[in-house]
C-alpha cells in the first residue's frame, strides 16, 4: 500500500454570514489514527466535505497524496469515507447499496461480500437498510469505506450509535487499519471515544486548529510536573514544600496537588522534614483534562460556543474520576 497523506492547507469557507472554516490546516500521516476533535460546529464535517470535493472552499487547498480529490479516478481506491451513516435509501438492501458503489468503481460483487464480512454484516446484508439500527448503519458505512481498499480512511463520528461491543470493535478496527500503514482520520466530539485509539490529535474550534499534537505529547504537556500527594498533615506539607519552591493546592480533604517539584524531590523534602504521607504519585492527565487545560484560556471560545461546550462538560463527568 502506497503511504498516502491528507494535507489540509489554510481552508476558509463561509456559509452566508457564518464562518465555517477559518484557516484550517493540518496533515494526516499514514500509519496512525488521527483524532479530529472539536465541539459540534467547529468545522470538522465541513473540512471532511471539502477534502472529498463535495463542498468548495473559498480559499485554501486539501490534497490526497498531493492530488485534489476531484482529480482522482476511482476515488474510493484512494480514500474511503463515512460522512453520514444515515445516508441510505431505506428500501434498498444493504448489499445492493454496496453493490452500486462497487459498480461505480469497477469493482466486483466478490469485493462487496468481502467487505460485508469485514464489517461483520454477513447475516444482515440482505435486509433493507431502512431497518438497520444506527450501529449497523455505521458498520455498513465502514464496509462502504473499505470497498476500494484505500490507503486513506476518513470517518465522521463513527462511534455514534455503537453499543459497547461495537465501540470495542471499532477501536480495534481503526487501530488495525493504521497498523497496516493507512492514514486514518476519525472525527469525534467526545474526547473519551478516542482516548485509547488516536495516536495523533487535531483539536479544532471555530473553524481552525487549536492544537495539532501527538496524544503522548499532549498528555505530557497537560500533566506537567504535577505530583499528587496524599497526606493527613496538609499544613506541614504545604509549608515545607512551599519553602522548597513548589506551588501547592488543596484538591480535597487529604489530597494536595504539588507543582514545580518532581515526585522524587517531593518525597525527599517530606522525608527531610518528617512530614507523614500515604502516597506520592506523578500526576497522569486524561485527554479530557488535557483538553480542558488546552482550552482553559480560550474563554472567548467557550463563552461564544455554548452549544459546543456542553458535550465536553458531559464527557468530563464520565471520565472525571481521575485526577482531582
Amino acid at each position: 500500500m502506497e503511504p498516502t497523506t491528507i494535507e489540509v492547507n489554510d481552508l476558509h469557507k463561509r456559509f452566508g454570514p457564518t464562518v465555517a472554516l477559518d484557516g484550517m490546516s493540518f496533515t494526516v500521516m499514514p500509519g496512525q489514527v488521527t483524532g479530529f476533535i472539536g465541539p459540534n460546529g467547529a468545522g470538522k464535517s465541513t473540512t471532511m466535505r471539502v477534502i472529498l470535493g463535495l463542498d468548495g472552499a473559498d480559499a485554501g487547498r486539501a490534497m490526497i497524496g498531493g492530488r485534489p480529490y476531484r482529480s482522482l479516478q476511482h476515488p474510493l481506491s484512494h480514500v474511503g469515507s463515512l460522512l453520514d451513516a444515515a445516508a441510505l435509501q431505506p428500501s434498498r438492501r444493504a448489499r445492493n447499496h454496496l453493490l452500486w458503489l462497487a459498480h461505480s468503481q469497477g469493482l466486483t460483487a466478490r469485493r462487496v461480500d468481502e467487505v460485508i464480512e469485514q464489517a461483520g454484516l454477513e447475516t444482515a446484508a440482505r435486509r433493507k437498510a431502512g431497518g438497520y439500527s444506527l450501529g449497523m448503519r455505521q458498520r455498513l458505512g465502514i464496509a462502504a469505506a473499505m470497498l476500494g481498499d484505500p490507503p486513506v480512511l476518513m470517518l465522521d463520528e463513527p462511534f455514534n450509535g455503537l453499543d459497547p461491543e461495537g465501540i470495542v470493535w471499532m477501536r480495534g478496527f481503526l487501530r488495525s487499519l493504521a497498523a497496516e500503514g493507512r492514514a486514518v482520520l476519525v472525527s469525534s466530539h467526545l474526547m473519551s471515544e478516542l482516548q485509547d485509539t488516536a495516536d495523533h490529535l487535531v483539536i479544532v474550534g471555530r473553524g481552525k486548529v487549536i492544537a495539532d499534537t501527538s496524544t503522548a505529547a499532549l498528555l505530557a504537556a497537560a500533566s506537567g510536573d504535577r505530583v499528587t500527594l496524599r497526606t493527613t498533615a496538609q499544613e506541614e506539607a504545604t509549608t515545607v514544600l512551599s519553602h522548597a519552591g513548589a506551588t501547592v493546592a488543596v484538591t480535597d480533604g487529604n489530597t494536595l496537588m504539588v507543582s514545580g517539584l518532581a515526585a522524587g524531590h517531593v518525597v525527599t523534602v517530606l522525608g527531610d522534614n518528617a512530614v507523614p504521607f500515604s502516597e506520592v504519585s506523578a500526576h497522569r492527565a486524561t485527554l479530557e483534562e488535557a483538553y480542558m487545560e488546552l482550552t482553559r484560556d480560550a474563554a472567548e471560545f467557550r463563552a461564544a460556543a455554548p452549544g459546543g461546550s456542553s458535550p465536553w462538560a458531559s464527557s468530563g463527568v464520565e471520565s472525571g474520576e481521575a485526577g482531582r
Partner: peptide
C-alpha cells in the same frame, strides 16, 4: 469481535477503460 478478518487484500479490481460504462452500471 475479532479484527482477524480484516487482513487487507487487494480487492478484485475489474477496471475497464470506460469508467462511464461503470457509472451507467452503478446507476
Amino acid at each position: 469481535m475479532s479484527t482477524g478478518t480484516l487482513t487487507p487484500r487487494r480487492p478484485g479490481l475489474r477496471r475497464g477503460r470506460d469508467s462511464y460504462w461503470q457509472l451507467l452500471r452503478a446507476e
